[in-house]
């Protein structure tokens, strides 16, 4: 029986209270790298959501039908990296064939997130730490990625405003972005108070 309430708790905590970027500090590279403009941030967020959800399904199946069967759980890190990379390749080819519009929309971001630690982190957390079942894994991964999207869009909004702000020269560039990200992170601490 699918327990809606527990799924909702998983979703909210993955998205807000335990936000991947702002609480767990995973996926910082794209978070700082492609948050210059909101349009690219949205593209990156879409690509991460897409890949994270699919990677959750694929790795859960591999974990439970191959690794556990042969007592190879200790190999999961390398196998998961491998599977995620292959999956992204496959998805990219399929998209190019069947949905060129989505393919061009995601663009370079799709292959970029192959080695994103947020993707690997999400599947390892879901399978290893929390020991979720398949449905829970899908929900957890999807909302973790939506949380990532929220965070990167928020930062890109701040950065677009910063473009026009007068910033002391020693703070220009990455330093002020780091500070902005830290402030957003502190703001997200407020969600810690949510209890179910």
């Amino acid at each position: 029986m699918i327990d809606i309430k527990s799924l909702l708790v998983i979703a909210i905590s993955a998205m807000l209270t335990e936000n991947f970027v702002l609480s767990r500090f995973m996926g910082i590279c794209p978070f700082l790298g492609v948050s210059k403009k909101t349009s690219t941030a949205v593209g990156m967020g879409m690509a991460v959501t897409f890949v994270m959800t699919l990677a959750g399904i694929a790795t859960w199946l591999i974990q439970h039908y191959i690794l556990v069967q042969f007592h190879l759980e200790y190999m999961k890190t390398i196998v998961f990296i491998f599977v995620i990379a292959a999956l992204v390749q496959f998805v990219e080819m399929a998209l190019q064939r069947f949905s060129p519009a989505l393919y061009t929309a995601l663009g370079i971001y799709l292959p970029l997130i192959t080695t994103n630690c947020a993707v690997l982190g999400a599947v390892l957390l879901a399978i290893d730490t929390y020991n979720y079942n398949l449905i829970e894994t899908i929900v957890f991964n999807m909302f973790a990625a939506i949380g990532f999207t929220i965070a990167i869009i928020l930062l890109s909004g701040v950065r677009e405003r910063l473009e026009e702000a007068k910033i002391p020269s020693f703070m220009q560039g990455l330093p002020i972005v780091m500070i902005s990200a830290a402030l957003i992170s502190i703001a997200f601490l407020g969600f810690q108070g949510l209890s179910f």
Binding site: F70, L72, I78
Partner: peptide, 14 residues
């Protein structure tokens, strides 16, 4: 064997 098999399977699929 398991890792090789996974690799082979993925290679063929790709």
């Amino acid at each position: 064997v398991a890792f090789g098999a996974i690799g082979l399977a993925i290679g063929i699929i790709l």
